Amino acid sequence: MLEQVILYTIILGFLISVVLSPFFIPFLRRLKFGQSIREEGPKSHQKKTGTPTMGGIMILLSITVTTLVIINKFSDVSVEVFLLLFVTLGYGLLGFLDDFIKVVMKRNLGLTSKQKLIGQIIIAVVFFIIFIQHDFSTVVRVPGTELSFDLGWFYFVFLLFMLVGGSNAVNLTDGLDGLLAGSSAISFGAFAVLAWNQSQYDVAIFSVAVVGAVLGFLVFNAHPAKVFMGDTGSLALGGAIAAIAIMLKLEILLVIIGGIFVLETLSVIIQVISFKTTGKRVFKMSPLHHHYELVGWSEWRVVVTFWTVGLLFAVIGIYIEVWM
């Protein structure tokens, strides 16, 4: 029965995204919600200018409808699901504001870094208040070992770092056609397996709903992309995956399962530090996916390679948690 529920969830999530897209993409185009491409980016990306963005709205609709329909059919909405939807939609709204400023107000950088950070922190604070009121554990466990640490109130700082860092890391990965959609499907799929292994079926259903939604979106986002998810989708997915790791008490394992997002973020950090301290760049361009483009790889080759590496990270993460 539960296996069928999971199957229904991924199919429904996929179908909602696929059905919405042919109607929503022309709507975005009529509203002139087209992506502006940074001039300092790879020259091959300039032809993408004007491609409809804010497609993350479709992903959010699919995740929300799918989760609520499936959960309500078989049980009540739990606190875990409420928190997951709250973070996802909260960061999605923040991303929507960022995208709206970019495409409608024609301010290419969108929200300022300070405005975005304040928004991310506010959502994290509300999340923590609800989290602590319902007596969720503040223990952090080291995967594959018997070691664990109760962080107490310091867990708030840890949680804040995870939600803000996770949303920004995933946001940095959204730079090539299909890269983030495929990578996130793999990572959320891994967490769905681990949620199932813990018998946290509500969290598993939510995770699978995300997988279905992003795979449906990938149909139209794969190279050459007909639509981009924008910060509306990437910030939401980043917040969601961090929240899932928190719900499952697999916070540290997120570093492995989300290894692609970590590598992308590290490449930016290394690039900035190197340039500011030595005046030299370690990579031709950061985030990392742009480096490989400028080395001469085709966009599709970069994307497939990153998907493969992401799948490897996901398998390692599942192995550590389930079999070690």
Rank of each mutant, 00 (worst) to 15 (best):
I130P: 00
E80G: 08
V103M: 04
P26A: 07
I246W: 06
L250S: 13
T9N: 00
K114S: 14
H45G: 02
K47V: 12
V19G: 08
M105L: 07
H291P: 05
R107S: 05
F86S: 09
G178I: 00
T138H: 09
S167L: 10
W297L: 11
K114M: 14
G239D: 01
K43V: 14
L263H: 03
T49D: 10
F283D: 05
F306I: 12
F14H: 00
P52L: 01
G41M: 01
W196V: 14
R301N: 14
I260F: 13
V170W: 01
T278H: 11
H134C: 10
K48N: 14
E146K: 13
F206Y: 02
V81D: 02
R30G: 09
K32E: 09
T308F: 13
Y319R: 11
L117M: 11
I10S: 03
H223T: 07
G212L: 04
I129K: 10
A185G: 04
E251Y: 02
F33H: 04
M1A: 15
S167P: 04
S148N: 13
K226R: 13
F128S: 06
S183A: 08
G165I: 04
W307E: 03
I16C: 00
I6L: 14
S267Y: 13
G144L: 11
G233E: 09
S183D: 01
V315G: 10
T305G: 14
G165M: 03
M229G: 01
V81Q: 04
E251V: 08
Y8F: 12
D76I: 14
G119N: 05
V87Y: 01
I130A: 13
F156T: 00
V103S: 06
V126F: 11
D177S: 10
F74A: 10
F82L: 15
T88R: 00
L93S: 10
S199H: 08
I37Q: 03
D150Q: 02
V295N: 12
F313K: 03
D231V: 03
V272G: 04
L93K: 01
A181M: 13
A209H: 05
P42S: 09
N197I: 12
F156L: 01
G317H: 05
F191Y: 08
V303F: 02
A213G: 09
S286F: 10
K32N: 07
V282G: 08
L215C: 14
L237A: 13
D76W: 06
F188G: 01
V219H: 05
T278G: 06
G34T: 15
S199R: 08
G34K: 10
L97C: 01
I205Q: 12
L235D: 12
A181D: 00
V214T: 06
L163V: 02
K32V: 11
G259T: 01
G216M: 03
Q198A: 14
F74I: 11
F136D: 02
E3G: 14
V203K: 03
Q271P: 11
F82R: 14
G50N: 01
L159H: 03
G166T: 07
V315Y: 10
I130T: 05
M1P: 15
L248E: 09
T308S: 15
F27R: 07
